[in-house]
């Protein structure tokens, strides 16, 4: 089902959790809401679910106004960050809950409920845990049961709040793959919230990057990584080298020294130069935009990571760059750096 969110504003006291947010989600998408804590992503998710109410704005699910309905009437599957499994019920009863509380007129008979729960437990590959209690499960198992429980009501959309947040690193990796393949299988429109960029880029079809209650960029994982729309997105996604520069016309200067790179249309004035670590080419001294002395080199896997103290500024500015291991760099070497790809954003404040 498609979701459309328009002009949503939500404040908690004087804190603006969501500041005029618009978002369209197409049917069958697997969308990630990515942002640091306090960016409003969980609030947005809870508003779509009906667990929070916006101060103003519209939420439509499949074209119909969702704000006239409470959470219990929206048929939205919600997976809570800490799972919120019913601790006094078995796994089976947890999954069956949504079916058992249906109005008598539409409630299925016991045999149908049992068959459906069995099917869902099979889907999450945990049918053998049916009679356990939540406290007897591992984190990853609880996560999958919470998902099965949300799916039991045949949700029109599935919302997951930090689905992997409380798990350790190894389980997290496994579950990411699993969630992707599950989505391919059941194809229900899904939105998940995460603060982990790797998770968002790896799992989602589309990523919504949020900061301070606003949407910074919406795009495919490739787009948000390769073409960040704002300084925030560039800094938040992937590792970036950030240097304060001045733009005058098409000229870019660092500490008053010209860098021979074009300004790419950035407005004149104070700005920030963003370069990915691996997008900095290393050449012999004097050949590139920036000169510097290598202070330290660590090599691991296919790359070597060098700390370079830039010339000028008494060597106080130190950046880390990644270079392929075709030529081993040496500490003490003087090199020149040339950004291959970069973005320049006007400095805020």
């Amino acid at each position: 089902m498609a979701i459309e969110v328009k002009n949503i504003v939500k404040t908690f006291g004087s804190f603006a959790a969501l500041d005029d947010v618009d978002l369209k989600v197409a049917d069958g998408e697997l969308l990630a809401l990515l942002g640091p804590s306090g960016s409003g992503k969980t609030t947005l998710l809870r508003i779509i679910a009906g667990l929070d109410w916006p101060d103003s704005g519209e939420v439509a699910i499949d074209g119909e106004n969702a704000l006239t309905r409470g959470a219990s009437e929206r048929q939205v599957g919600f997976v809570f960050q800490h799972y919120a499994l019913f601790r006094h019920m078995t796994v089976f009863e947890n999954v069956a809950f949504g079916l058992r509380v249906q109005p008598r007129a539409v409630r299925k008979d016991e045999a149908t409920i049992r068959a459906r729960v069995k099917e869902l437990l099979d889907l999450v590959q945990l049918d053998w845990l049916a009679n356990r209690y939540p406290s007897q499960l591992s984190g990853g198992q609880r996560q999958r049961i919470a998902l099965a429980r949300a799916l039991a009501i045949e949700p029109r959309i599935l919302l997951l709040d930090e689905p992997f947040g409380a798990l350790d690193a190894k389980v997290r990796k496994e579950l990411r793959q699993w969630l992707r393949s599950l989505h391919n299988e059941i194809h229900v429109t899904s939105i998940f919230v995460t603060h982990d960029q790797e998770e968002a880029l790896e799992v989602a079809n589309r990523v919504v990057v949020m900061d301070k209650g606003k949407i910074e960029q919406i795009g495919s994982p490739g787009e948000v990584y390769d073409n960040p729309a704002t300084a925030f997105v560039h800094g938040f996604i992937g590792e970036s080298i950030v240097l304060p520069v001045d733009v005058a016309g098409d000229a870019v200067r660092l500490d008053g020294r010209p860098l021979n790179i074009p300004a790419l249309g950035a407005a004149s004035g104070a700005a920030k130069l963003f370069v990915r670590r691996h997008d900095m080419a290393i050449g012999p001294a004097g050949s590139g935009a920036l000169d510097g002395a290598i202070r330290h080199v660590r090599s691991f896997g296919p790359i070597q990571r060098a700390e370079v103290a830039l010339a000028g500024d008494a060597g106080k500015t130190v950046i880390e760059i990644d270079a392929p291991r075709d030529r081993e760099l040496q500490a003490g070497e003087i090199v020149s750096l040339q950004p291959r790809r970069y973005r320049i954003f006007a400095a805020q404040d």
Partner: peptide
């Protein structure tokens, strides 16, 4: 659809 939304809380009662 109106833009003003009545304050509602999730849990009833």
């Amino acid at each position: 659809m109106s833009t003003a939304v009545a304050r509602r809380s999730t849990l009833p009662g």
